[in-house]
């Protein structure tokens, strides 16, 4: 036990004096300006302001779903340097659980009551997240833990895990497309002034995405657990030297990230109105583009990167559908040429 109890004299409060000029970091607005710049640039190319607004809102909603899926992956990589190419399996699990739960709640789904519709989607999301989180726990224990620190083996084993996951999904739900029609009250679009149409489902996805973003920001910036996650992304050895068990923290983040991927899978499946066992693999490319653009380990970067990718996919899908996928890879290359560590690099990496 230490005897250091009364080393300091009675002292004023330990925070800087109110009103004193306290240097603070300037927020880097340039990536957000890039987001706005992309939207402004698209306006003359698309021509009609109504179509532009519709595409912009659709792109932002798509981006927010991608953010939900990718946010866990970027923290998993940042914390433990784990390249999880099997993240897609959690997306597929979420989407298939949604198909199962919403299928079982046929009465609520077909009901004209929006409250019942939302309750059904909420239940589907809860089940999707729980199953994806549970499988994430097993995935970490069995596949990821033996290959800490070995990138090549991580890529091989997690891709293998995803293939096995896909095959198991085929055994349970079949290889064919499973329809996932949105509940009655979430079909169709809201018409806003100026011929702007916003699909109700995308609106829901956008609200959920913003809530997840706000929740993550609160967790990471306002709680000690969040501080530990951010510190662990920068220097996990030092976090351990301070007395915190980073392995437990990593498992919690892995499970949380898997559950968020499950939630994203529910929304993505509803957005696509159907689910195939390959749904995870299809989204995998996009989410890796997003976390690389954002800066590995950065939640804010992941958010801005996801919105950029969502907007780019929608604009190019409208203007030149043949280059839609290439456009996002082109976007990634351009951003990496400008900022090789991504939009918001984690400084110690």
């Amino acid at each position: 036990m230490s005897t250091q109890k009364s080393i300091a004299p009675a002292a004023p409060p330990a925070s800087p004096e109110p009103g004193a000029a306290v240097p603070q970091a300037r927020f880097d607005w340039i990536p957000l300006a890039l987001l706005a710049g992309l939207a402004v640039l698209a306006l003359p190319l698309i021509g009609s302001p109504g179509s532009w607004a519709t595409l912009t809102l659709a792109g932002l909603a798509m981006g927010l779903i991608i953010f939900i899926i990718a946010s866990g992956l970027t923290l998993v990589f940042g914390l433990m340097d784990v390249l999880n190419f099997g993240h897609g399996v959690f997306i597929a699990l979420g989407a298939f659980m949604a198909a199962t739960v919403l299928g079982a709640l046929g009465g609520w789904v077909a009901s004209p009551s929006l409250a019942l519709n939302l309750l059904a989607v909420g239940l589907a999301a809860a089940v999707g997240m729980a199953v994806a989180g549970g499988v994430g726990l097993a995935f970490e224990r069995v596949l990821v833990r033996p290959v800490y620190g070995m990138h090549l083996k991580q890529i091989l084993i997690t891709m293998g895990g995803m293939i096995i996951g896909e095959e198991l999904i085929k055994v349970i739900w079949g290889a064919q497309l499973t329809p996932l029609p949105p509940p009655e009250g979430l079909r169709g679009a809201l018409l806003l002034p100026g011929d702007v149409a916003v699909e109700k489902l995308r609106l829901l996805a956008a609200v959920v995405g913003l809530l997840v973003f706000a929740g993550l920001l609160l967790l990471l910036n306002r709680t000690k657990l969040g501080l530990l996650i951010r510190a662990g992304v920068q220097d996990r050895e030092m976090v351990e030297s301070l007395g915190y068990r980073i392995r437990r923290l990593f498992v919690a983040v892995f499970v949380g990230g898997s559950a968020l991927a499950g939630l994203g899978g529910v929304l993505w499946g509803l957005y696509q109105q159907g689910v195939t066992p390959q749904i995870g693999a299809q989204v995998n490319t996009l989410i890796f583009i997003v976390i690389i653009i954002g800066g590995l380990g950065s939640t804010l970067g992941c958010f801005v990167g996801a919105l950029l990718v969502g907007l780019m996919a929608n604009y190019t899908g409208f203007l030149a559908p043949k280059v839609a996928l290439f456009s996002n890879i082109g976007l990634m290359v351009a951003i990496l040429l400008w900022r090789p560590q991504g939009l918001y690099p984690v400084t110690s990496r």
Binding site: Q234, M238, E240, S241, V346
Partner: peptide, 24 residues
């Protein structure tokens, strides 16, 4: 393990590279 050593023995460690969390 390192966290147990730091906690149980009540040790503070300052590494050569200082181990500062730059983003915090």
């Amino acid at each position: 393990a390192t966290p147990e050593i730091a906690q149980r023995c009540d040790i503070a460690y300052v590494p050569e590279n200082m181990g500062i969390f730059g983003d915090l």
